[in-house]
Design a protein around this nucleic acid. Structure first.
Lengths: 165, 165
DNA sequence: TGAATATACTTAACATGTTAAGTTAAATAG
DNA sequence: CTATTTAACTTAACATGTTAAGTATATTCA
């Protein structure tokens, strides 16, 4: 279960390159981040699924609750989704009447998205549960450590994006 | 670009629940982890794509390079992939003759996976580039901070899994 | 003004994530 | 020793991630 700690050394005869000085891949940053993310999500997904929402759909709904009437491109940015995904999610939520789209008068290409009363109801059912989970995580893990983690993640992103020139 | 720092407060008239004491979702742990992961992956994906590999396919190959002949279930565990994904990836890599499967004599249901010479060649092309990227990231971000990040991520996962009882 | 270009999406195509439902082979129970 | 159950996958089905191509509306500029 805990790969990085049980340290199961492979038998010598199975490594294809025993003497090479190629790097060790045992600690993979993407995998560590993925594991952490999945572990966190596991706490939130059940109450979403209970309401028939995927994490991405929930992201869209809670972003609209904060600022209703966002255009789809802006919503995609804030939800950290690519446009094709956002487009499909908008169609899905619209078909379930959780959101409504109205085309922008000044530019017919654009459409703004609005939470419907039904969508807001759903938000209000899920939000308190999510908040509770989040508080629980904060208590268990420690507020200070959590802040430090956010800080490090932000710095990591900054460091990586900087070297993109 | 940096949502969590620019702190763009939405105009009052767009929030659907301005006075509510519902939690703030601006800082989302899953999203922070996702952003960090994507930023890291962006550094590694190009050299993989150059060789026609997805990150998951690469994970499988480098795991097999470390320990050849793993069974598919074990490989899925180590790659942090679900069986259906692993199954499809194995089929893909097998069709490209990067790996080879041999059924286990003692149990006909199982099959063990082996890197082919062609697969090993590919590993040896990609591995040094990956190592170089990783070293660059370590230098830019700082070795100490990186270690601290790993530590925090591990602790977070432990903390979350612990409360699963 | 009218043609070329750019913008804001949507659709398509394909790999992956995820849950559920097969299949086939082993283990176990009666 | 046969019938049931379990184990190790594979297949199916559907949402998402991702890149590329398509469509309709604006904008630009000749």
């Amino acid at each position: 279960m805990n790969q990085s700690k049980t340290n199961t050394v492979p038998p010598e005869d199975t490594a294809l390159n025993p003497g090479s000085d190629l790097p060790e891949f045992d600690r993979s940053l993407p995998m560590s981040l993925l594991r952490a993310r999945e572990a966190v999500m596991k706490k939130f997904i059940p109450s979403l699924k209970e309401q028939g929402l995927s994490p991405q759909q929930w992201r869209a709904i809670r972003t609209l609750e904060q600022q209703n009437g966002l255009e789809i491109t802006e919503l995609a940015d804030r939800c950290y989704l690519l446009m094709p995904s956002m487009s499909r999610i908008a169609q899905n939520l619209e078909s379930r009447q959780l959101i409504e789209r109205r085309s922008v008068a000044s530019d017919q290409r654009r459409s703004a998205l609005f939470l419907t009363p039904k969508g807001l109801d759903l938000f209000q059912i899920i939000a308190p549960k999510s908040a509770e989970r989040y508080e629980h995580i904060t208590e268990e893990f420690g507020y200070g450590k959590l802040e430090l983690l956010y800080e490090l993640l932000d710095e990591l992103v900054a460091s990586l994006n900087q070297s993109d020139k």
